[in-house]
Amino acid sequence: MASGKTGPVAGVRRVREARGVRGDRGAGAVRGVRGIGGLLRAEARAYMLLVRVAFREAAQYRTSLALRSLTEAAATVLDLAAIGIVFAHLSALEGFSLAEVAFLYGTSALAFALAEAFVGPVDRLGWHIRDGRFDVVLIRPVSVLVQTATMAFSPQRVARVAQPAVIVVVSCLALHVHWTPDRVLLVPAMVLCGAVLAASAFVATAAVLFVAPDATVAVAASTQGSALAARYPMTVYGHHLALLLTVVLPIGFVSWLPALHVLSRPDPLGLPTALRFASPLVAAVAVGLAALAWRAGVRRYRSTGS
């Protein structure tokens, strides 16, 4: 309905629109837009184009980019140091061995880093609304989400996937697990679903900024919070909070539940084992909800102009 053309929900209508255009404007304007697949391809092309532009823009300020890249590297080192310092003093946490905790930490951090790399800048939405740049977004023939996810895109953030990826590999090597094919396959699958879940969470929380454009820090803090919550065994948070974080907020589906299968452990919360394989389904639902939230946000912006 409104223009937050995100995800498959909005796809059908967009295609209809595109056909309407083709009727009287010639094929040139809508070349390649055929069906939902074509639509997604078109959006993906626009996304890649805008990301390339962001790289070129960042390259204009070499010192700043160098500093930020160095910071990113230093952050990785310090982060590893922090983990190292904590783990150096621990042999186990909540009954999970060091390697098991590292596996949980790595897979969830990798999922969040991937989400951050793809849609991280959506949390700048508030700034764009405040200083009026968002109106410029709405006059371009590209979906609002693609544009918002690529404005103020920081290239060096992409490097953030390196550190958790290393932790995943190292922890997998250290785990005492019988690596059956299903376990091997589950590792990349859980990271992928986790990334989709995290990206949905980013987009859904950023949609709050349509209502409260100044809440950038709060939105960043909430994504930080979910990243933090996903990193450790859920039982750390006590039974009730753990249930809340697993079932109500689907943070447990990022890595905790599938990891239980990989580590072949009983669920301390006593949840059905089927849930360990439910991440793709949950991720799909999350995408739909995020799309709804985002579209509601765009609609609200367009009716209030705030």
Binding site: V21, A29, P141, R302
Partner: peptide, 14 residues
Amino acid sequence: GLDPAHQRIALARR
């Protein structure tokens, strides 16, 4: 010929 609120992207091209 378009409804601007509901066909923003199609309109944006023209």
